[in-house]
Amino acid sequence: MKILVPIKRVIDYNVKARVKADQTDVDLANVKMALNPFCEIAVEEAIRIKEAGKAEEVIVVSIGTKAVQEQLRTALALGADRAIHVETDAKLESLQIAKLLNKVLEQEPAELVILGKQAIDSDNNQTGQMLAALSNRPQGTFASKVELADGTVNVTREVDGGLQTVALNLPAIVTTDLRLNEPRYASLPNIMKAKRKPLAVIPADSLDVDLTPRIELVKVEEPATREAGIIVDDVAQLIEKLKNEAKVI
């Protein structure tokens, strides 16, 4: 079995995004970039399935400028076998990403696709579900447990108020939630080895997908800031304030 893991290069988790002065977008110049945390969990899960002897190959794919090769190499250092870079300078929306991934999936018919549930930049939470629709596969989103059996995959999902388990026929699409696993760190020898692993580049425009934008970014603003309030001396004053000033208890 082959596992395909689409990954995204995003702003580093620990960096606070700042809005550009002209309000056209978030300023990413000279900002540290990293592998999206949910994608890291997806890569880790795929590698664990392979290590358990239930998959033969883990392929990572990313879409974007040449810079995404850095994150593909990171995934290779973690243990993926080979990488595909779908190269484009265009700023893409989830639907176009899903369409490009679907084309890759046609070329690399992986029985299981594991994606992060959302990217921490656009916060869309769409791509996995869209890819599932386009590839006509069942979907197990927000997974906290993935168990492969013969021809099926059981996915335990983080849902409001608890956990839901569904059994999906393979081929299927899974998206990861935080508790699925704790990703490993790449060792230095593996980072060196990753440099020699195969990385194929496919121009996005060779995949016959219409990349015309359908959502116009009108403006990006700072959120309304909250004023810091006061420091109270003790519990008695806190309760007095909550009762008489804020009137919330």
Binding site: I11, K16, A17, R18, V19, V26, E93, S94, L95, I120, D121, S122, D123, N124, N125, Q126, R214, I215, E216, L217, V218, K219, V220, E221, E222, P223
Partner: peptide, 30 residues
């Protein structure tokens, strides 16, 4: 395409939504 998690309706085509963990608010027109 979908517009996720809107926090305001500007008009029938235009919506506000938080991005980057709410560190920025995008106004987007579908």
């Amino acid at each position: 395409n979908q517009i996720s998690e809107i926090i305001a309706v500007v008009d029938a085509d235009t919506f506000k939504r938080p991005i980057y963990a709410g560190n920025a608010i995008a106004t987007v027109k579908s």
